[in-house]
Every structure is written in structure tokens, then in C-alpha cells.
Design a binder for these strands. Structure first.
Length: 1157
RNA sequence: GCGCGUAUAGCUCAGUUGGCUAGAGCGCAGCUCUGAUAAAGCUGAGGUCCUUGGUUCGAAUCCAAGUACGCGCACCA
């Protein structure tokens, strides 16, 4: 059965869409699963994609890896799960839904149905579910388009099912949520779940606490207004502490002032008042970033701190005193050790506020907890102002060495407060606005700069403001909405990870698991990174005061907030429920329905209510090694598929997010088993110039644009330009050939590059084979007698090497190694050597051949057929579409109906011939050298030459000259090839000065040097120059100063490489010249044929004439040859009307041709 | 500040266990070839393989220090 003709210009994206249809039509994926059912398992665990937006090209990188490795292990006979997952719950979705609904705050959410919080939350949660379903479906379609073979949900009926019943997994499924419950229960059993009352970073817009993991995402360099403030000391008239803060709003809640007892403080007198300030900071250059002032080298090594353009540099504190003092000046009147200052009382900056008058702190709920826990005596903030010790945490690297301490507004402040019995004053509500009790500030937002103005005005009015300045520092922002974070006293729920910087507790258990998994690529040191995170991380904050997410299964006693229980399953909840079960039943375990359930405290008999918090979304993603593998519902299944053999995700951030959650939860759930064996991390997709992709800058590319639609990106100058669709296989190759450890620049420029060097080349090889094969009626199903040539055996031998590389690369999760080797094979071996060399064999006319000739032709066809079909299979995991397109045309009826149903090739060692490979490499090198020699002689390839002579340096070259002399003759267009076996070298070398660079060095000695070089041994000189400069007439000269030229004897041109020397006879005899002209004539006629739209096999009648005797002589001498090459069957004597003029070696030739049949 | 990583041509990057004259693609200059044409080949210019020192017969490769950049951690009153 002959092949379908291959069109040279293929629309790859269109072909890909056809293959998608084909796969559905022939049920390729279903057949693959059936084929592998019951075979050894290879377990892949998908990291869930956030189902919140359409896919971008950055998602396609990981999904390409996932699919490529899945396909490889399927082709090598493994059963797979093919389950892909969606990340559904969390703030990402809430924020988008808020935008959709036009909501600005939590209050808006709770008022969606006016006056009915419960209905509002229900409405909002439903909107979140809807959004997830919508985009999960969009992403499903897009993933299918990428060629990602998974058990997708495709039909409306499938999407109408609950998330638990679909093929893909959804982290919002009941299974997933309840499995997390069982995890939390297990943690609670071990006493690791606790309620933390602490100052945490807080986003006022989202109304949530920000966990340690999340905070890392949001640091930005920003400007704040910092203030130096006077705290007047009681019992010491006209004496002040000088404190510094970058968050003026916290001054309202000042309770203490922390010093370092070991530091020395100065007493500075200015205009009748005395200021205390640490000695070490007084003259310090504050633009140099921190450094130990103890060390003398510190100043030398100090670095400029990061700063923003346009913000004035900081003054030293001394300068501030100078400028305030004016002519009067200031004076340092004494020093005092910090420890002597401890306990001094002072007047706070805002003691008139009601909030400062409340015993045990403020507001009331805070005060009641403080009282209950006994953190401080029954005093108000205003009554508590005094100097405390902050120990070594108070340094002289910033500020004044006296730290304003507001235990309700700062993490360390809170700790110091507890240690020193200071009551916390917590000024802001969950939106970041001041509570009642803060006078005129009440209702103002803490991040608002008008609030800072109000604070400064109030301080000025009391003469407490010493100075303000514009200060630049890295400050945390909400990773999602970019709002500045505030530190706020909150209660959140945590999992105790054990003591920091130890290998004890849960932390240490996870570390043991980390030691059991393989992190790839090695250069990333993934294990060390993961261990580093585990070593330093704080307790895991699992709560979030929001609406859409895992409902934390924690029920707290309505009357005793210290008593709580963790529920581990739906069944347990049902059993414990004393209220609300009927209303909840039939709903997913989400808000608001689950909130209705009350249980009874078995100890106190009180009702217990669920905390309103939802869970950290990394719990959702981290449990999937259990939930999706049916840990709680089908333990046999779990035993079969756990742990996963392989996971792969973009690594930035994941060592503290998904990888961490997966490892932590597995450690707990399985008592110390690793959740996966191999982890492949990969970096980030950047735009084609290496810049970050941002929607706002217009350089991000949506998946649909890259796959099918095309789009726009900025060009090098930043102007928007359109680009054509790139297609899935081009993307996939781009991703797979890339080093996963480094960022990938994506865009039309790299896509075109990769398409040009790989896809089109592959397509051309395929098209060439098919189009000639079908002309000859080559049918792979009915083999003909064939006699393999060396070159056939050679390409088959090298093909086995490629197969070996492929298997090794896939097995070690290093697909890049395979891709790079495949490119070399395709370009250097197949396209530019095998096919090019074998064109005559493949293009010859069957009818012109005798039996031997036919056998030779079939050998070429069969060899190339084997190569092409093997490549289809080798490439199938990486470029499933193009492989399939080719396979569909190449396969016989006995072959599998999809390339993806084939077995992955195995190297056949019987076909490997190392010596042949070496000899062929030598030949390729000789061809290059011969070409270089021709170039040197400035003789074009069409001009035949008499002889090529080779002086071999290795056995392989020696053999190649003998074995492949025909190839050399043809490639280099020479009449003969000879080995140079004489004792004298084939080439001589001469050295000449590169006067451009050497003249300046030599000066007047130039002539002397030239004379020396004329006599010196150039070959020796060349060797020395490689080692370094060589003294010539007393002046050191480098390689660049001297040109070494190899020279053949007169009339010859020669070059050398690694000892092998090649020379070509450059003398063009009259006979050779005539032959060359004949080739020129043939070339022009062929061009003319092609331009006239003739087919390759068309016969012509030809008219040729020239006034040039030279051309006519060449024409007459080689008339037969010209006729044969151009399929001329008739010569026309009279000039036809449509004569074209062409120029050959400056002479005009008239040409006219006509198709005869 | 601590830790990890990277540094190879104008750009993007390969370079196995140390080995002979360090490579590719793109870009640039020139030439060539062409019925594979969205082609292809050759040559050239362009390299302090970040710097310094060490190990070695031999270092882009191994070791140490330094510099620059990136990442992680800590700090950010």
C-alpha cells in the first residue's frame, strides 16, 4: 500500500487537531490502557493545577513533562493511573469571585444577601464552586489540546457529576476534605494542634492572617514614613528616650521601650532637654546596611542598603541633632550602661486614649484572654510604660537602640510583653481600621498615609515628634492582592512542628522521609533546600478567617475557649452531632452548612461550635497522595499505588508549599513513608527576552494563543507584534529539550528556532522518504530483496545508540539528554548525511535499474523506513502529534493503529558497528576538510578537480579514505582520492605577522620579526603559541598576532585538522573546465525546469545557444550528459519565441525548454 | 548576616569519569550548493571558559579564596 503524498508545507497546528480527532475515533487512549492493564505499575501523582483561570504557557511546561513520562512508561509496558487534579479551594478563587461580583471587603461578602450572613456565605461559596468548575473544564479542554493523555471529564454528563465522581480529582471533593480531617485528627491525637494567640501579619483587604509560607511571596521594597519620637521620662524632668519607628500607627499602642542592657547609651543635651540614644548609632552612616559595629572591618565591608530612586538618603542621628540645634549646638553630657536604665518609667505618646486606660490591655476580648492566661498584672497600657530588656534583639544596626514596644502590634513586641508583664493594646480590626477607643483615629485605616499624618500632627501638638524621614525597606505584602500587611493580634490554629533548628519532633520525622526521596535535577540540591526549609520553618498555621475552603474540623467549647476537639471523619461528626445534622446532611463539608453542627463537650457538657476558619490550601494539595489513592476507602488500591514513582512541578516556592505539604502529611498519615520516589523540579517560564511574564506588560502568553490562535507580544524594542500559532508539539519540544534547572525563555522567536531546526527538518526527511517511496511503489508490508550498503548499516548502528540514549534519559527523568541527542542525530546524521548521500539511490528510476540496482534501492528504502518508524516511536512521548501524523502514513496494516500503542524501541546490539561509526565520523571530517581546502583555493564545488590527497593521522581516517573513496570523490567533486604515504609532510606551514595587532607591539622591530618568521619553523611556532605568548625578537607576541597558514605545494590547496592533512589539486585543466561549465549549464536548465512548473519525471525538448565559443565547446563535449541529467529527449535547433537568457561565468546562454509528453 | 547554586562567543545555551586545536543554535560578514525550498552547507570575525591561588604530566572540568548574579533562610523596631 503506497503512502499518501507529503506536502512540503505543513500546517502543524491543523495536523495536531486532526490527530486529536483520530485519537477519539480509534479510541487510542482506551486501547493503550487496555493494552497495559495488569502490567507492572508506574505511579504518577499529579500536583493539582489551580482551577481559577485559563492556562498560560507556563502551565504547559510541567504538563508536557507529565505527559511525556507517562507516555514513555506506557510504551514500555506499565499500567498507569492517569489521574490529573484541580486545586479548588482557597483565597485565589475567592479574590477572583469577589472581582466578578464587585465586592470589596468581607463585609460585602457577608451582605450579599442583605441582612443574612448565612445565605450570603452560601451564595459566595457556591459562586466559588461554580468558578472552579468552569475553569476546570476550560483547563481540561486546553490540556487535551496539549496532547496530555489523562482520564479527562469530557461530556456534560461527566461534568454534571459531583467532584467526587469525576475522573479528575478536585481538592474540593468530600473525599479530599474528609481525608484532611483524618490527618488533623491524627495530629491532634499526638497533641500537635493548638490555638495560637499571637501577633501575625494580616491582610486588611482580605481579612486574613498570612502564614509564614505565604509571607515569603510578598516582600517588596517600599517607602514608609518613619518617625523619631520623644518618650519623656517620669521622675527625670526634661529627659527623653528617643525611639524610632517605621509604623507610626503602632505608637497608639505603645506600652514599653526595649533596650539592650549591654549597650552604652549617650545622654545628649539639646536646647535644655536631654535625649537618650545608643552610642553606636549616633554617628552611624545609616545608608550602609547592617553590620556588626563591633568589628573594625565592618565598615569596609558594609554594603549600600537597597534604596528607591527619588527618596533622599538617610541622615545620621548626629546630623539631626546638629540641624535641630542650629548655632546653639548640642552636647554629649554623659554615657550610661543600658542595664542601669531598666525599669525607668516614661510617659507614652498616646496615654490620653481610652484604649490605653483598659486593664490587661485592649480591646476587651484581648484583655480577657490576657487575664485568663495571666500574662500581666491588672494594669492598663498607660500604667505600664517602662524600660524593659529586649536582650540582644535590640541592636545598634537600626533605629536609636531604644525600641518602641507595642505588644499588640509586633511579633517580638508580643513576646517581650509577655516576658515583662506588659498588657497588649491591639488597635485595629480585621479590616485594618482603628477600633473604638482610639479617639479621632477610630475608623481610620492603618495603612492610609493620612493616618500617619494624623499621628504626626498629634505628636507635634504635644511636642513629642523629634523628626520624621522617608524610609525605604523590604516590607511584606499580601501575596494575592498586594496590599501592605499589618501586624495584628489574632488567634489562629497551628500544627506544632517541634523545636526550630533541631531534628526533633514532627520536623525531624519529615526530614527522615526527605532523606528517602530523590530530588532532580541534581544541580538544584532539592533535598538540601527541603531540609533547610524544614530546619527553619515555624509552626504550620492552618487556619484562615475566610469562607471558601476546607472547613477546619475543630469544635470549641462555647463557654471555655481552651477546650476544643478535632473531628476526624464525616461518620464521627454524625455520631457526635447534637444539633444541625439534618440541615447539613446532603451538603459538602463547606461553609455555611457545616457551621450549623454543634457537638457536646463530654467533659463539661457544654455545646461546642465549629471555629469559622477555613483551612490552609496546602493542606488540600498535600493530602492527595492519600485522598486520590483512596487511603480511607480502598486500602488495597492505596497499597498498590503508593508511593508515587514520580512527581514533577515548577520548584520555586514548592519546597515550602506543595513538596513540603506532601511530605509532611505523608509522614503523619503513613507514619514515615515517603509519598513519592522521584521529584523533578523545573524552573520558571520567562518571556523570549528573559523578562518576567506579566499580564500587565503584555508579554505573557495564554495557552490558546500559543497552541492555535496566535497572539501578540512585545518585540525587542517593546512594540507589540503579532505571532502565528506555535502549536503543541513545538511547545513540547521546546520544553523537553530545555534544562529544567534554568529558566526557560518562551516566545515566537525560540519557537521558530526550534521548529526550524527540529520539526521542519524531521518533516522534510519524512516527506522526502515518503514521496520517493511512493513513486517507487515501496511497500513495507512486502519486503523486497535488499543489499545493505555500509551507509545503511551505519545509520542503523547510530540509531541503536539513539535508542539507548532515549531509554537511559527517560528512565533517569532527563528527557533533555534525549532531545539534544535526537537533534544531533536528525541533523548531522540523518538529514545532512544519510539522506543527502542517498538521494541518487532513492531518486533513481526503477525501470532503469538491473536486479542489483533494485536490491540496492530497496535497501535504502527499507533502511530509511526503519529509521523513520523508529523515530516515530522514539519521539512519540515528546511530540505525540507529529509522531502520529507520520506513523499514520508509514504504518502497515499489521502495525498498531496509533504510534502510542507501539512498544518503545529496544536497541538491537547486533546492528551496532563501532568501527563503522568511527570510520564514518572520519569521513565526515574529511569532507569538511576537503571543502575547506576548496574554499581556500576559491574554487566552487561545481568545478570538478583532479585529485584529493589525504595524509591520515588515525587508523579511522586511513580506513575511511580507502573504504569511502567514492563518497569523497562525489562529495568533493574530484576525479580521484589518494592517500599520502610519503615521509615528507603533505603540507608546509608558514607564519606571517598579523600587522593589525602586532605592529603596535613590535614598533621598529617589525621588519626584523618578519625576517625571523620567514626562517622559523612555523609548525613549531604554532605549537608554542597555543601555550602562550612567544618572544620574537625580544617582544612577546600572542596567537592573535601571528597568522599560521598551511600551504600545499604549488597548484594545490591544503588544510589540516588534528594531524590529518588534506590537500586538493587546484589546477583546472581545459577538460575539467569544460566539465564544470557543463554542470553550470545543467544547473541553469534544472532551475528553468523547476520555474516552469515541470514535474521531476517530465521529458523535455531543449534549445540551447550561446555566442560564447567557450560555452558552446562545453555544450558540444557534454551534450549527452546534459541531455541525460535534464531528461532532454529532443534538441530544438531553431530558437523558439520564449527564449530566456542566463549568465554563466559572465557569458550569456539562451535557454528554452518545452515539455514533450 | 547564614546557606545553596550559577558564571563558557554579541544573545540563548551544550560540554559525560580531568585529556590533544572548547562547541551548537541564533545574529554578523563572505562564499557555496540546491528538483528536501518555511531549506541546506562551508569559511570567517567574535572566547582571559569570572578572578587569583592550589592539586595534576595535563584543569572549562577537581580544591580553596575572592568578585558578580540568582535562589533559599534570617532580619526588616
Amino acid at each position: 500500500m503506497p503512502f499518501e503524498k507529503v506536502e512540503p508545507q505543513a500546517d502543524f497546528p491543523a495536523l495536531e487537531r486532526q490527530m486529536l480527532e483520530l485519537w477519539v475515533r480509534v479510541q487510542a487512549f482506551e486501547k493503550l490502557k487496555a493494552k497495559n492493564a495488569g502490567k507492572p505499575r508506574w505511579s504518577f501523582l499529579d500536583g493539582p493545577i489551580t482551577a481559577n483561570n485559563p492556562m498560560g504557557v507556563h502551565h504547559a511546561w510541567g504538563r508536557t513533562y507529565k505527559d511525556a513520562y507517562n507516555r514513555y512508561f506506557a510504551m514500555t509496558g506499565h499500567e498507569l493511573r492517569y489521574q490529573q487534579g484541580f486545586d479548588c479551594q482557597g483565597l485565589w478563587v475567592e479574590v477572583e469571585v469577589e472581582k466578578e461580583l464587585g465586592l470589596k471587603s468581607k463585609r460585602d461578602i457577608e451582605n450579599l444577601v442583605p441582612g443574612d450572613i448565612e445565605a450570603s456565605v452560601n451564595h459566595f461559596v457556591q459562586a466559588c464552586k461554580d468558578r472552579v468548575n468552569k475553569f476546570a473544564r476550560v483547563q481540561t479542554e486546553q490540556s487535551i489540546r496539549l496532547g496530555f493523555w489523562m482520564n479527562w471529564d469530557r461530556t456534560d454528563a461527566e461534568w454534571a457529576k459531583s467532584p467526587d465522581e469525576r475522573h479528575s480529582y478536585f481538592t474540593m471533593s468530600e473525599e479530599n476534605n474528609y481525608t484532611i480531617w483524618s490527618f488533623l485528627k491524627k495530629c491532634h491525637h499526638k497533641g500537635m494542634v493548638y490555638r495560637g494567640y499571637d501577633v501575625m501579619p494580616w491582610c486588611g483587604r482580605c481579612g486574613v492572617g498570612i502564614s509564614e509560607m505565604e509571607m515569603k511571596e510578598g516582600y517588596k521594597l517600599v517607602e514608609h514614613r518613619a518617625a523619631f519620637v520623644k518618650f519623656p521620662l517620669k521622675d527625670r524632668p526634661n529627659e527623653n528616650l528617643l525611639v524610632w519607628t517605621t509604623t507610626p500607627w503602632t505608637l497608639t499602642s505603645n506600652v514599653g521601650a526595649a533596650i539592650n542592657p549591654e549597650l552604652t547609651y549617650l545622654k545628649v543635651q539639646l536646647k535644655g532637654e536631654i535625649y537618650y540614644v545608643a552610642k553606636g548609632v549616633f554617628k552611624q552612616n545609616r545608608m550602609e546596611s547592617t553590620g556588626d559595629t563591633e568589628e573594625p572591618e565592618a565598615s569596609a565591608k558594609a554594603k549600600r542598603r537597597d534604596w528607591l530612586d527619588g527618596v533622599p538618603h538617610l541622615n545620621t542621628i548626629e546630623q539631626m541633632f546638629k540641624s535641630k540645634a542650629g548655632k546653639e549646638g548640642f552636647s554629649i553630657i554623659g554615657e550610661i550602661k543600658g542595664k542601669e536604665m531598666l525599669g525607668w518609667e516614661y510617659v507614652g505618646p498616646f496615654d490620653d486614649l481610652p484604649a490605653q486606660q483598659h486593664a490587661f490591655g485592649f480591646p476587651e476580648e484581648v484583655a480577657s484572654i490576657v487575664e485568663q492566661r495571666g500574662w500581666c498584672p491588672a494594669k492598663s497600657g498607660a500604667e505600664s510604660h517602662r524600660i524593659i530588656t529586649g536582650g540582644a534583639d535590640v541592636s545598634e544596626s537600626e533605629g536609636t537602640g531604644i525600641v518602641h514596644t507595642a505588644p499588640g502590634c509586633g511579633q517580638i513586641d508580643f513576646t517581650w510583653g509577655k516576658e515583662n508583664g506588659l498588657p497588649p493594646v491591639a488597635p485595629i480590626d480585621d479590616s485594618g481600621n482603628f477600633y473604638e477607643g482610639f479617639g479621632s483615629l477610630t475608623g481610620k485605616n492603618a495603612t492610609d498615609s493620612a493616618t500617619a499624618d494624623a499621628i504626626f500632627d498629634a505628636l507635634k501638638a504635644k511636642d513629642r515628634l523629634f523628626a520624621t524621614e522617608r524610609y525605604v525597606h523590604r516590607y511584606p505584602h499580601c501575596w494575592r492582592c498586594k496590599t501592605e500587611l499589618l501586624y495584628r493580634l489574632v488567634d489562629e490554629w497551628f500544627i506544632n512542628m517541634g523545636p526550630k533548628q533541631t531534628e526533633d519532633g514532627f520536623r525531624g520525622d519529615i526530614m527522615k522521609v526527605v532523606n528517602k526521596v530523590t530530588f532532580l535535577p541534581e544541580s538544584l540540591n532539592g533535598r538540601a533546600r527541603e531540609r533547610d526549609w524544614l530546619w527553619n520553618m515555624g509552626d504550620w498555621m492552618i487556619s484562615k478567617k475566610r469562607y471558601w475552603g476546607l472547613s477546619l474540623p475543630i469544635w470549641v467549647d462555647d463557654k471555655d475557649p481552651t477546650q476544643f476537639e478535632v473531628i476526624g471523619s464525616r461518620e464521627e461528626l454524625k455520631e457526635r452531632a447534637v444539633e444541625g445534622w439534618t440541615e447539613f446532611d446532603g451538603h459538602t463539608p463547606h461553609r455555611p452548612w457545616v457551621d450549623k453542627i454543634k457537638i457536646r463537650n463530654r467533659q463539661t457538657g457544654n455545646l461546642m461550635s465549629r471555629i469559622p476558619d477555613v483551612g490552609n490550601p496546602w493542606l488540600d494539595a498535600g493530602i492527595v497522595a492519600f485522598s486520590t489513592m483512596k487511603y480511607n476507602t480502598d486500602r488495597d488500591y492505596w497499597n498498590n499505588w503508593f508511593p508515587a514513582d514520580f512527581i514533577t512541578e515548577s520548584f520555586p516556592g514548592q519546597f515550602r508549599n506543595w513538596f513540603y505539604a506532601l511530605l509532611a502529611m505523608s509522614t503523619m498519615m503513613s507514619d514515615g513513608l515517603p509519598p513519592f520516589k522521584n521529584l523533578l523540579g523545573f524552573a520558571t517560564v520567562k518571556d523570549q527576552f528573559g523578562h518576567d511574564m506579566h499580564k500587565s506588560t503584555g508579554n505573557s502568553i495564554e495557552f490558546v494563543a500559543a497552541a492555535d490562535k496566535g497572539g501578540t507580544v512585545p518585540d525587542a524594542k517593546g512594540n507589540s507584534t503579532t505571532f502565528a500559532p506555535i502549536g503543541a508539539d513545538v511547545m513540547r519540544w521546546l520544553y523537553c529539550r530545555h534544562n529544567p534547572a534554568s529558566n526557560l525563555n518562551f516566545g515566537p522567536i525560540p519557537a521558530n528556532e526550534v521548529r526550524g531546526k527540529f520539526h521542519i527538518k524531521l518533516w522534510n526527511c519524512y516527506g522526502f522518504f515518503v514521496n520517493y517511496g511512493r513513486l517507487d511503489g515501496f511497500d513495507p508490508a512486502t519486503p523486497q530483496a535488499a543489499t545493505l550498503q555500509d551507509i545503511d548499516r551505519w545509520i542503523l548502528s547510530d540509531l541503536q545508540g539513539l535508542i539507548t540514549t532515549a531509554r537511559q534519559a527517560f528512565e533517569s527523568y532527563n528527557v533533555m539528554a534525549f532531545c539534544l541527542e535526537a537533534e544531533r542525530f536528525l541533523d548531522d546524521r540523518l538529514s545532512n548525511w544519510y539522506i543527502r548521500r542517498n538521494r541518487p539511490r532513492l531518486q533513481s528510476n526503477v525501470s532503469d535499474l538491473d536486479t542489483a540496482g533494485l536490491a540496492d534501492k530497496w535497501a535504502a528504502h527499507q533502511t530509511l523506513y526503519t529509521v523513520m518508524t523508529t523515530l516515530c516511536k522514539l519521539f512519540a512521548p515528546v511530540i505525540p502529534f507529529l509522531s502520529e501524523v507520520m506513523w499514520q502514513n508509514l504504518r502497515t496494516h499489521q502495525d498498531p493503529e496509533s504510534v502510542h500503542l507501539c512498544d518503545f524501541p529496544k536497541a538491537d546490539l547486533k546492528l551496532v558497528d563501532e568501527e563503522l561509526s568511527k570510520d564514518m565520523d572520519a569521513l565526515l571530517n574529511l569532507v569538511t576538510l576537503g571543502g575547506a581546502a576548496r574554499n581556500l583555493a576559491k574554487i566552487k564545488f561545481r568545478q570538478p578537480l583532479a585529485e584529493l590527497r589525504v595524509q591520515p593521522a588515525t587508523e579511522a581516517v586511513r580506513r575511511a579514505v580507502e573504504r569511502f573513496s567514492d563518497q569523497l570523490r562525489e562529495e568533493l567533486n574530484v576525479k580521484g582520492v589518494r592517500k599520502h604515504d610519503e615521509t615528507s609532510p603533505l603540507l608546509s606551514a608558514s607564519a606571517k605577522l598579523n600587522k593589525k595587532t602586532a605592529a603596535a607591539k613590535l614598533g621598529p622591530k617589525l621588519k626584523e620579526a618578519e625576517a625571523y618568521l620567514a626562517t622559523a619553523s612555523a609548525l613549531e611556532l604554532a605549537d608554542k603559541l597555543k601555550l602562550g605568548p612567544v618572544e620574537i625578537v625580544g617582544i612577546p607576541l600572542e596567537g592573535g598576532d601571528i597568522n599560521i597558514e598551511y600551504q600545499a605545494k604549488a597548484g594545490w590547496a591544503g588544510v589540516a585538522d588534528r594531524g590529518t592533512q588534506v590537500a586538493i589539486d587546484a589546477r583546472v585543466t581545459e577538460e575539467l573546465a569544460k566539465e564544470g561549465l557543463a554542470r553550470d549549464i545543467i544547473r541553469q536548465i534544472q532551475d528553468h525546469r523547476k520555474n516552469s512548473g515541470l514535474n521531476m519525471e517530465d521529458r523535455i525538448s531543449l534549445y540551447l545557444h550561446s555566442d560564447s565559443a567557450k560555452l558552446m565547446v562545453a555544450l558540444e563535449t557534454h551534450r549527452e550528459h546534459i541531455a541525460a541529467e535534464t531528461l532532454t529527449t529532443q534538441w530544438t535547433q531553431m530558437p523558439p519565441a520564449d527564449v530566456a537568457e542566463v549568465k554563466i561565468e559572465g557569458e550569456m546562454l539562451s535557454v528554452s525548454l518545452r515539455k514533450t509528453s
